[in-house]
């Protein structure tokens, strides 16, 4: 589907918002002293009048974003998600409650933040955000899909939560990602024995796991379920029907994330043996990304093991 290229999804998202700003004067950006690392500063350099850095004050950031949206603006607003979570009240009671046109960017999510440690590794954000009515929740796996999400979010009225990560990731999609649509899961690989449904940078881990499974005689589908809400129920049911086994994979707590969302669909529509690969309800710690993913059981190896286990039973 794409060339093998390591790229930054946060940079791609920042560039995309900058480009959108040139086309639409009603797009504004609000940040909280992390705008360089979230790359929102790119927009700020081109459109200083429409760029608001509120300092280290996330509650105020979200409140101001809400006010701008009430005033008719399309707002991109973001910082590291672990900081933005202190504004869950404002997120719920303004953006969510009123269905405002605010696109929240939660940066540096998951264990993949690495050395900053457990205090910075949000593993609960998908669970929180998808439980707030009216929010769409998306987690891109690479730079091209992050770019596509920025564009589609700007064109779709209403609240978004866009979950991005700190490290670069290997491109899964071609650029531009024309086959990428918010709300529509992408089947990246067709298999017969098991379906791996992943989001964020676990998509690349899922592809690696599928390669390894193939060498041991297991044929695996890989599905990029980037939109966790509203989730693509048809794609999940199709995967369950065609392979009869599901493994989900996310850099997030096993409670309340992608795995839970998939289980909610299958329990209603097609009960299917499944396994949830994710952080097992514990906080992370400092370390390199690959070390952390191995230690906390969210690497391609864990997906491989779970898929093998399901195929055997």
């Amino acid at each position: 589907m794409s060339e093998q290229k390591l790229d930054s999804m946060r940079k791609a998202l920042g560039v995309a918002i900058q480009e959108l700003g040139a086309k639409n004067i009603d797009i504004v950006v609000v940040g909280a002293d992390t705008t360089e690392s979230v790359h929102l500063d790119l927009f700020g350099k081109d459109f200083p009048d429409r760029f608001f850095n509120v300092g280290i004050a996330e509650q105020n950031m979200v409140g101001i974003a809400a006010g701008l949206a009430f005033g008719g603006k399309t707002v991109f607003c973001g910082t590291y998600m672990v900081f933005m979570e202190r504004a869950i009240d404002q997120i719920r009671n303004t953006i969510g409650y009123c269905g405002l046109d605010v696109k929240l960017i939660g940066a540096h999510t998951g264990l993949s933040v690495g050395p900053d440690g457990g205090s910075h590794q949000t593993i609960e954000d998908i669970a929180i955000m998808r439980a707030i009515p009216k929010f769409r929740v998306v987690a891109p796996c690479d730079a091209p899909s992050a770019k596509a999400i920025a564009k589609q979010a700007a064109e779709t009225r209403g609240p978004f939560y866009i979950r991005i990560v700190r490290p670069d990731s290997m491109n899964v999609y071609a650029d531009p990602a024309d086959d990428f649509k918010v709300g529509k899961a992408n089947v990246l690989r067709e298999g017969k024995d098991v379906s791996i449904i992943a989001c964020g940078i676990m998509v690349q881990e899922a592809l690696k796991a599928a390669d390894k499974l193939a060498t041991s005689g297991v044929s695996a589908s890989v599905i990029d379920c980037h939109t966790i809400k509203p989730i693509d129920e048809d794609a999940i049911v199709r995967a369950a029907s065609s392979t009869g086994r599901i493994v989900t994979a996310e850099d997030h707590n096993v409670i309340g994330g992608l795995g839970s969302a998939v289980a909610e669909v299958l329990s209603r529509k097609r009960p299917t043996p499944m396994s949830i690969v994710g952080v097992r309800d514990t906080f992370g710690e400092s370390g390199g990304q690959p070390e952390l993913m191995a230690k906390y059981g969210i690497s391609s190896d864990s997906i491989f093991e779970e898929a093998k286990r399901l195929v055997k039973t």
Partner: peptide, 18 residues
């Protein structure tokens, strides 16, 4: 919307900017 305290001035800033 009302309810939780302390949010209105921030929203006012956003509206004033808009």
């Amino acid at each position: 919307p009302g309810g939780p305290e302390g949010i209105g001035l921030s929203e006012g800033i956003g509206m004033a900017l808009a």
